[in-house]
């Protein structure tokens, strides 16, 4: 690019968050480069999803700021952030239950980042995205009729429909079969090759180790380890958190 110093895709600067005076996250600072895949691991309730909510504007941090491509987006409304190019999936899927699967994806195309072209192209694009996640045969079914793993795939298709440059995946791999996980790994790699930056939450480490450039371990409100997957998984803090020796 022409610019000498392109700003990084995402910067988190000293993010703190809490509920009712009880701190949940403290001083989360992280820089994510373009086309990087960063995964967050950590025990239940440590605040991984909350961190995603803060990035997407669904929650406001108590302190700190979120910088996306050099622009401070802290506290902006979710739809603005989506249109700037950040999309996310929900851990507990949130389909539009009365709409068909195809319509669910069309909503993302219509309201997402870029103004789309002619109506026919939109439909083709939606079908292409459904193909990508293997849901094309379900295009005409209503959102409420899908199984949980289908809903997770719909979440991905819908998020991609908004034409993001940064995609946050919240537990997309939970409960998937080994075969499905292999497909998910391929999908994530191809998305990155297509220019996307990805943040992934994966509680069970099934997916993360295979695709992540870096792993971030969250434990007791703080980032305890950041680095290559193997390094992080072998760090004493993470061993303790995952194997529970710290409780004794």
């Amino acid at each position: 690019m022409a610019a000498e110093a392109t700003p990084p895709c995402l910067e988190l600067k000293g993010i703190s968050f809490g509920f009712h005076g009880r701190p949940l996250l403290e001083d989360i600072t992280l820089t994510v480069g373009h086309q990087e895949i960063v995964s967050f691991i950590g025990p239940n309730g440590v605040g991984k999803t909350t961190l995603f909510n803060i990035i997407c504007g669904l929650a406001a941090p108590l302190k700190g700021s979120v910088i996306y491509r050099g622009v401070d987006i802290t506290g902006r409304e979710p739809h603005t952030i989506c249109r700037m190019g950040i999309a996310r999936t929900f851990q507990i899927p949130r389909p539009f239950p009365q709409m068909t699967v195809l319509e669910n994806v069309l909503v993302g195309i219509w309201f997402g980042a870029e103004e789309a072209g002619k109506p026919d192209g939109e439909r083709q694009e939606a079908l292409r995205l459904l193909d990508l996640v293997g849901l094309r045969h379900k295009a005409e079914e209503r959102g409420r009729e899908l199984t949980l793993s289908e809903l997770r795939r719909l979440e991905v298709a819908r998020a991609l429909a908004t034409k993001p440059r940064l995609l946050l995946l919240d537990e997309v791999a939970a409960g998937l079969s080994p075969q499905a996980i292999r497909e998910a790994v391929e999908l994530i790699k191809s998305l990155r090759d297509g220019g996307l930056t990805l943040l992934i939450i994966d509680h069970f480490l099934t997916l993360t180790c295979q695709v992540s450039d870096r792993l971030v371990a969250l434990c007791e409100r703080k980032m305890t380890a950041v680095g290559k997957p193997a390094e992080v998984l072998n760090s004493p803090e993470v061993m303790r958190a995952y194997l529970g020796r710290g409780d004794a």
Binding site: H79, F90, F111, T162
Partner: peptide
């Protein structure tokens, strides 16, 4: 119209609608 779709997404799931770029407010 698209506006009508926005209205319906708000009924069906407001948080999802906002995350997909619908200006809920």
């Amino acid at each position: 119209s698209r506006w009508g779709w926005a209205v319906r997404t708000i009924r069906e799931d407001e948080t999802a609608a906002a995350s997909l770029g619908v200006n809920v407010r």
